[in-house]
Nucleic acid binder design. Structure first.
Length: 516
RNA sequence: GGCCCGUUCGUCUAUCGGUUAGGACAUCGGGUUUUCAUCCCGGAAAGAGGGGUUCGAUUCCCCUACGGGCUACCA
C-alpha cells in the first residue's frame, strides 16, 4: 500500500482555532497510526488577511501539543517550499497549462460589474446568479472577447483573474471517507477564480496543485470545505490528475456550547473559557485566552478534542497521545457537529492531572509557584503536589489552593469559627497545641494518633476540634489531609499558627456580623 | 432563496434489523472522609415528526421539520 501523506494547511490569519487543532490532530493521528508523514503547509495566499506572528503561533501550538510535522517550513522536505507564497511560480505555470487546454479562461470584470450582473439576473428571476455557464457569455472574458482584444488587454497589464471553466449539465461524484458518496451537479457550480488579480492563487487552485505535488494521499479538513470539493475534483480532472486524487474526509464542525453556529473566536470571551491553544494578543488589543494559560495540560486538550466528534467505541475515555495513535480510525469519526463542552474539558484536565507523576506536575507548576511567591523550593513543592493532584481541575488552581503552605498571608474563613468556637474551645486548642509541641517525630501518622488520643481522652468529638484546627492552620475548610499538611508545614509554624488562632478567634467570634 | 451535510438522554457518544437503547460529562440522592476533592453506590434523563420496506425498525428508503455548512479576486 502507498505510504500515507497528510497535511495540515492553516492560514496565518490569526491564532490557531481549537477546531483547527482538532483537524491537525486527526491528520497527525492518521499519519502516526499508518506510519505515514505529517506535513505542515502554510496557506498564506491572502495578503489582505495576513497576520504577523500567526505562523509562529501555529508552530508553537503544534509543538506544545507534541504534533511536530515531519515536513514543513521549518523542517524542510523533498516537496518544498511549504509556504504557498513561495510557490507562486508553480501556480502560474499550472494555470498556464489549464489556459492552453481550454479548461480555464481569463476574466476582466470588475467587482462592480459582477455585482451588477448578479442584480440584473436576479431581476430576470434567476434565484442565485453566479459567474457560470449561463452568465459568463455576457461578461468580459477571454470567451467573449476576441483573441486580439484579450492579447491587448493582457499585454497592457489589465487586471484580471483566471477562472475555471465549468461545463454544466453533468454530475461530479466523489467518495468522502466520513459521509460516503457525495454528488453535485455542475450546473450548480460557478466558475471559481483560480488566480486572483494580484497574481496569487485562490485556496482552490493552490490546494489542489500543492496536494498533487506534495503527493498528499488523504485530505482531512473541516466540513466547510465539502461544498467546494466538487470544484477541486473538477480541477484534478482538468489537470489530468484524477487517478492521483487524494481521499477526502470532511470533519464535522465544533459548535457553540449554546445557541447557533460553529464555535467562533469571540465565543471564548463570551462564555468565559479558552477556544485557543495559547494566549494571543490581537492587533486591535483584544486578548484571547489560551488553554495553556488557563492551566490545561496539552495531553488533556488533545484527549478532549479527540473525543469531540470521534470515539473508539469502548468504555475507556482517558487516552494519552500514544494510546490515541494506537486506536485511532477515521471510520469512527462522527458525521454530525459536536457542541463544545467546557465542563467536559475540565474533567479531562483533572483526569490527566491525576495521572501525572510528581515530577511531571512539578515541571508544569513551578513557574506559577515561582512567580506567586518569588522563591522556589523544589523538594518542598514536590511534597505538596501529591496532596493536590485530585483536587485541582486546572494548573492555575494550584497556587491559590496551596497558599497556606507558602505564606502566612491569608485570612480566616470566619463563618466556621463563629459556629465552632465555644466556651471550652480555647482550653482544648491550647492543650492540643502543647501536646503537639512535644510530639516527636512530627509526622502525619504520629500527629493523627496523637490528635485521636487527645479527642478520646477529653471525651470530645472530631467536630469540636478538627474544624478549628484546620481553620487555624490553613484558614479554610477546603483542603488536603490535615495531618499530612501539618507535617509539611512543620512543627514550628504549626505551633505559631495555633497561637495566632488562639488570639484571633475570640475577636472573630465576637464580631459576628463580619462577613466570612 | 439555492446547493450540500446532518438529526439517539441537557451535552459528548455506543448500537452497524430483534438490546430492559449502554457509557461518560453535567445534574439529583446516598455512602466513605476532619473539610474539600477523589472514590463507591443509586436516581432522573434520549431514538424530531410522518409515511413506507420488513415477521420485526433507533438502525434501510421517502417526505416534512429542525440544525449546520457553503453560496467572495477569504480560507
Amino acid at each position: 500500500m502507498k505510504k500515507i501523506r497528510v497535511r495540515f494547511a492553516p492560514s496565518p490569519t490569526g491564532p490557531l482555532h481549537i477546531g483547527g487543532v482538532r483537524t491537525a490532530l486527526y491528520n497527525y493521528l492518521l499519519a502516526r497510526k499508518e506510519g505515514g508523514t505529517f506535513i505542515l503547509r502554510i496557506e498564506d495566499t491572502d495578503r489582505t488577511r495576513f497576520v504577523t506572528g500567526a505562523e509562529a503561533y501555529i508552530k508553537e501550538a503544534l509543538s506544545w501539543f507534541g504534533m511536530v510535522p515531519e515536513e514543513g517550513p521549518d523542517q524542510g522536505g523533498a516537496y518544498g517550499p511549504y509556504r504557498q507564497s513561495e510557490r507562486k511560480e508553480r501556480y502560474r505555470e499550472q494555470v498556464q497549462m489549464l489556459l492552453e487546454k481550454g479548461k480555464a479562461y481569463r476574466a476582466f470584470d470588475t467587482p462592480e460589474e459582477i455585482a451588477a450582473m448578479k442584480e440584473a439576473w436576479q431581476a430576470k428571476g434567476v434565484h442565485s446568479p453566479k459567474y457560470d455557464a449561463v452568465t459568463r457569455q455576457s461578461m468580459r472574458n477571454s470567451l467573449t472577447l476576441s483573441p486580439s482584444e484579450v492579447e491587448e488587454l493582457v499585454a497592457s497589464g489589465a487586471p484580471h483573474v483566471v477562472r475555471l471553466l465549468v461545463d454544466p449539465g453533468r454530475e461530479v461524484a466523489f467518495e468522502d471517507e466520513i459521509r460516503g458518496e457525495v454528488r453535485f451537479s455542475t450546473s450548480e457550480l460557478d466558475d471559481k477564480v483560480l488566480l486572483k488579480g494580484d497574481g496569487m492563487p485562490t485556496y482552490h487552485l493552490a490546494n489542489v496543485v500543492d496536494d498533487y505535488h506534495m503527493k498528499i494521499t488523504h485530505v482531512i479538513r473541516g466540513e466547510e470545505w465539502l461544498s467546494s470539493t466538487p470544484h477541486h475534483v473538477l480541477l484534478y480532472e482538468a489537470f489530468g490528475w484524477r487517478a492521483e486524487m487524494p481521499v477526502f474526509a470532511h470533519l464535522p464542525l465544533i459548535l457553540k456550547p449554546s445557541g447557533k453556529g460553529k464555535l467562533s473566536k469571540r465565543d471564548g470571551a463570551k462564555f468565559g473559557f479558552p477556544v485557543f491553544p495559547m494566549d494571543w494578543e490581537a492587533e486591535d488589543g483584544t486578548h484571547y485566552l489560551g488553554f495553556r494559560e488557563a492551566g490545561f495540560l496539552p495531553s488533556a486538550v488533545i484527549n478532549f478534542l479527540a473525543f469531540l466528534g470521534w470515539n473508539p467505541g469502548g468504555e475507556q475515555e482517558i487516552f494519552t497521545m500514544e494510546e490515541l495513535v494506537e486506536v485511532f480510525t477515521p471510520q469512527n469519526i462522527v458525521k454530525s457537529g459536536a457542541r463544545f463542552d467546557y465542563d467536559k474539558a475540565l474533567w479531562f484536565n483533572q483526569q490527566h492531572i491525576m495521572k501525572c507523576t510528581v515530577e511531571e506536575l512539578y515541571e508544569m507548576v513551578k513557574d506559577r509557584v515561582q512567580s506567586a511567591y518569588g522563591v522556589l523550593d523544589a523538594p518542598y513543592v514536590k511534597e505538596i503536589i501529591p496532596l493536590m493532584q485530585e483536587r485541582i481541575k486546572t494548573l492555575n488552581e494550584f497556587v491559590p489552593s496551596t497558599r497556606f503552605f507558602f505564606t502566612e498571608d491569608w485570612a480566616y474563613e470566619a463563618k466556621m469559627i463563629r459556629k465552632k468556637w465555644k466556651e471550652d474551645s480555647p482550653r482544648h486548642l491550647k492543650a492540643l497545641k502543647d501536646v503537639l509541641q512535644g510530639l516527636d517525630p512530627f509526622e502525619a501518622p504520629a500527629i493523627e494518633a496523637m490528635v485521636r488520643d487527645f479527642i478520646q481522652e477529653n471525651a470530645l468529638s472530631f467536630g469540636a476540634i478538627m474544624p478549628l484546627l484546620r481553620i487555624g492552620l490553613t484558614g479554610t475548610m477546603k483542603g488536603p489531609d490535615l495531618y499530612k499538611s501539618m507535617e509539611i508545614i512543620g512543627r514550628e509554624r504549626s505551633i505559631q499558627r495555633l497561637e495566632r488562632a488562639l488570639e484571633a478567634f475570640p475577636a472573630i467570634k465576637a464580631g459576628g456580623q463580619h462577613p466570612g
